[in-house]
């Protein structure tokens, strides 16, 4: 929870109006992100910790209940995919 996620060099996260979604761009590739993946990665700024991100998302989506587990699982998965680094 104290770890700080940041995008790996070469990975870029941005909103694409034509696809009406957030995407993750990397060398010769693109992942179209679903709503929750987009919302989580939108919080990744290389400054804030996983705990900060959870707090922020729980404020944005008060009806969703506690998000700690889902968010850290997703970020671990993103690390396994080598999209982000956690340090």
């Amino acid at each position: 929870m104290h770890e700080v996620p940041r995008f790996r060099r070469g990975f870029r996260f941005q909103w694409e109006p034509a696809q009406e979604s957030y995407v993750l761009l990397y060398p010769e590739g693109m992942v179209k992100l679903n709503g929750s993946a987009g919302a989580i990665l939108n919080e990744v700024d290389g400054q804030r910790s996983v705990a900060d991100i959870v707090t922020s998302l729980e404020q944005q989506f008060p009806d969703a209940g506690p998000l700690g587990k889902d968010v850290s699982e997703f970020l671990q998965d993103a690390r396994q995919q080598h999209w982000i680094e956690l340090s």
Partner: peptide
């Protein structure tokens, strides 16, 4: 403008 995101 048409939506291209990857450019080679």
């Amino acid at each position: 403008k048409m939506g291209a995101a990857q450019l080679g």
